[in-house]
Design a protein around this nucleic acid. Structure first.
Ligand SMILES: [Mn+2]
Ligand SMILES: [Mn+2]
Ligand SMILES: [Mn+2]
Ligand SMILES: [Mn+2]
Lengths: 216, 216
DNA sequence: TTTAATTTTTAGTCTAGTCTAAAAAAATAA
DNA sequence: TTATTTTTTTAGACTAGACTAAAAATTAAA
């Protein structure tokens, strides 16, 4: 399993999460920031190894084996993110790029010991669930903040966008995982929301509300 | 800086430690388990980047810059080894291969935070000194156990051979870093030694004694 | 149901890093 | 000093992974 193969599997895994049916060559190319022709080549290779099912022009789907491999990489990525935040004082907007490297380190023992060392965390610093050794992911029943209505309450449990810029915005506004939130008002015109967190009220755009997960 | 370039620099650094003057193409090839022709190619590349000084047929030497890069990789290698042993319950014979991967992770912040997290250790689990950020290594004045004479005493502070098999042998014999050792007798015929560690006496071959560092 | 636009694949090229085989240089022996 | 052996470099080929340009297949529009 090369680094590149692993990254393709991970991309397909994430895309499968959002769209169902076969994942298109172009979608993968866009996510991987490569060209469609490169994707076709790699897909053939993964297909040879029975990590994906592929028929020309029909898109691609992970096999059971492929799904397991991908989930394992994501498991490593998220555990390392927890490590960086919990043990090495990284902020949640700094961890992703380093985790992109660390997720490719190969050692069963390393990752299982790390898991234990961190106290078997269930979620990473962005609220994303950490798959177990067998690739099982607790399918979270969380909803996007955007879907809440006036006077609804909930707890912030995750973010959809993990980009550094978005996370820094949240920090600035005092929006963090675990905080209680209440929707004070919702503007039908632009779908912006007035919300309350810890007695403080302020307005956020739809774009923001669309990237925050809430547990009701 | 690619992974391969880093590994070549590290190999040259280690070879420079043992031999002085230009390091030969063949020596590098042997250490890297590649062929001499591959080494020549890579050396040209490193020379372009001014990380080594190179004249055809004359061997190679690290530049100041090259030395710094190499020392930094070794710093990372050894800090990760400490982490694995101290925090993740690895044994000292298990850490090297994983550290070979981890040493290539690129993040200034990661390695400095790790250093702090580990309490700024001075040596790795095998007794090797950990270079500081500027590539300075405390040049240890330790001697090989082999060089001790009858009735000499000392403390075990390091190993020269870090292979898993050697380390496991030491574990079995109860030979560990920090232990006091006394030479009871030395056999001139085969240079084997009778030693005492914690009231236990036993005999070791020259090969063993040649791979253990002692502080007198 | 033709035609046009889009998507995907193929064909051919490039770079990094490796290899084998052969040539060139240096070191050693006669 | 010449011949032989060893070391190092060059030449040419291969693989993984990427790219561009062109061809083929599919989808959408007319
Ligand atoms: Mn991430
Ligand atoms: Mn994350
Ligand atoms: Mn090591
Ligand atoms: Mn070591």
């Amino acid at each position: 399993m090369t680094l590149s193969e692993e990254n393709y599997l991970k991309a397909i895994y994430h895309l499968s999460d959002t769209f169902d049916g076969g994942i298109s060559t172009n979608a993968i190319a866009e996510k991987m920031k490569t060209k469609a022709s490169s994707v076709t080549d790699m897909i053939k290779k993964l297909s040879e190894k029975e990590l994906v099912n592929y028929r020309r022009y029909k898109g691609v789907e992970l096999t059971v084996e492929g799904k397991l491999v991908a989930a394992n990489i994501i498991r490593k990525h998220r555990l390392w993110e927890v490590f960086l935040v919990e043990k090495l004082n990284f902020t949640w907007d700094e961890v992703h790029d380093v985790a992109e490297q660390l997720e490719h380190i190969k050692s069963e023992k390393l990752i299982n010991q790390l898991d234990e060392f961190l106290g078997f965390p269930k979620r990473d610093p962005h609220g994303d669930p950490i798959p177990d050794k067998d690739g099982n992911v607790s399918n979270h029943t969380d909803v996007l903040l955007m879907t809440l209505n006036k006077n609804d309450k909930g707890i912030i449990v995750g973010v959809k966008d993990s980009s550094s810029s978005f996370l820094k915005y949240l920090d600035k506004q005092g929006i963090a995982l675990g905080k209680k939130i209440k929707v004070i008002d919702k503007e039908p015109f632009d779908n912006s929301m007035k919300i309350r967190i810890k007695k403080e009220e302020f307005t956020i755009s739809q774009q923001i509300a669309n990237n925050i997960y809430i547990k009701k």
